[in-house]
């Protein structure tokens, strides 16, 4: 059995080995010429080149786009308008009413995203913490159940969206259950509130396994003797949870919180397939707004999309900085132990 992957591996690596051998002489020559520093440059070059072209350069270019107007994507055919796009995005007569804003869709999407993130992240943390606590117990088949909750994490967002769209449709599984419980069937995704709830539920379903793993790792890092000491002291279980487990899990919870926030703000794929932002604009979130404005709508406006994405990026940068700060603090705490 083991021979098959090995021969397969050999077939794959044979041409690679040949290439690696072929480029050795020129690289040897380069090494003699430039020393180790020159070789470091060679090793860094491919990654940094791709990185520069497809990440760094676009990052700068985004700012330029956000200051131009027009429907053409070619920068030469676009006119410079300064901060007009930002002004357009941010102007409202009454900031509590999205409909009074010049770009009301942006405000609707931003508002939706805000409520979505708040609710989804709370749900996510609650559900994954409970699951992690349960998986941390001394239960039979822990590895199996850990895998169970992780399964949806691997599914593609499109598949996730389709699975749930199929379950929530008129002749779907959920309505079968409703009918069997003696309740009226619904067309779930045609209802604004239900559709919004569905996007939250589905995204929690799809991602909770990931956060559960992080929290579980945190729980398992808590030294066993702390619990044994508490048991010797006769501490009641609830108190053990509040005074030992939760404080020591704190750093992991913080990481999970920020990661979930960052991902939540960018939610797109599964929602787009599940509801397409509808009904109406009830599940229109920021990334979909950017996508629609920049690419999908007939009157596309790349400048506006760029400006909106920069605003979203700023939120993400703040969240990421918080995360980096947190993980650095964790590291220091870890190294002190």
């Amino acid at each position: 059995m083991a021979a098959i992957p090995r021969t397969l591996g050999a077939i794959v690596t044979a041409p690679l080995t040949w290439i690696a051998r072929a480029i050795d002489p020129p690289l040897r020559w380069w090494q003699r010429l430039t020393g180790l520093n020159g070789m470091a440059a060679v090793f860094l070059l491919p990654n940094l080149a791709i990185f520069g072209v497809f990440v760094l350069f676009p990052l700068v270019l985004n700012v330029v786009y956000s200051m131009t107007a027009g429907t053409n994507i070619l920068l030469g055919d676009r006119s410079f308008v300064g901060l007009d796009q930002y002004q357009r995005l941010l102007t409202c007569e009454d900031y509590t009413q999205a409909i009074t804003c010049r770009e009301d869709m942006f405000w609707t999407a931003a508002g939706n995203t805000f409520f979505f993130v708040v609710l989804q992240v709370s749900m996510m943390i609650l559900v994954s913490t409970i699951t992690a606590l349960i998986l941390n117990r001394n239960i039979r088949g822990r590895g199996f159940f850990r895998a169970v909750f992780f399964f949806p994490v691997l599914l593609s967002p499109v598949v996730v969206g389709l699975i749930w769209r199929w379950i929530l449709q008129r002749q779907g599984l959920l309505n079968l259950i409703m009918v069997n419980l003696g309740m009226e069937p619904e067309v779930w995704l045609n209802d604004r509130a239900y559709a919004f709830t569905a996007t939250i539920g589905v995204s929690v379903w799809a991602h909770m396994g990931f956060y559960t793993l992080i929290l579980l790792a945190g729980l398992q890092a808590i030294p066993k003797d702390l619990y044994e000491a508490a048991e010797m002291d006769g501490t009641p279980p609830a108190r053990v949870f509040w005074r030992i487990t939760l404080p020591l899990l704190g750093p992991n919870l913080a990481v999970v919180l920020v990661l979930a926030l960052i991902r939540g703000v960018q939610i797109f794929d599964e929602v787009y397939v599940l509801t397409g932002g509808g009904p109406g604009t009830s599940t229109l979130y920021l990334t979909q707004y950017i996508y629609e404005v920049g690419f999908a709508s007939i009157l596309r406006n790349p400048g506006l999309a760029a400006a909106a994405s920069i605003l979203m990026g700023l939120v993400l940068v703040v969240l990421t900085l918080v995360q980096l700060g947190l993980s650095r603090r964790n590291e220091q705490r870890g190294s002190r132990q």
């Binding site: 990185f51 497809f54 350069f57 994507i73 920049g294 994405s309 920069i310 979203m312 993400l316």
Partner: peptide, 21 residues
């Protein structure tokens, strides 16, 4: 490289499209 962890794809859709174009 650390800094670009902060740059998810959804933030650079427009310019990236233009680069790919």
């Amino acid at each position: 490289i650390v800094a670009t962890l902060m740059v998810p794809l959804s933030v650079i859709l427009v310019p990236l499209y233009s680069v790919v174009n």
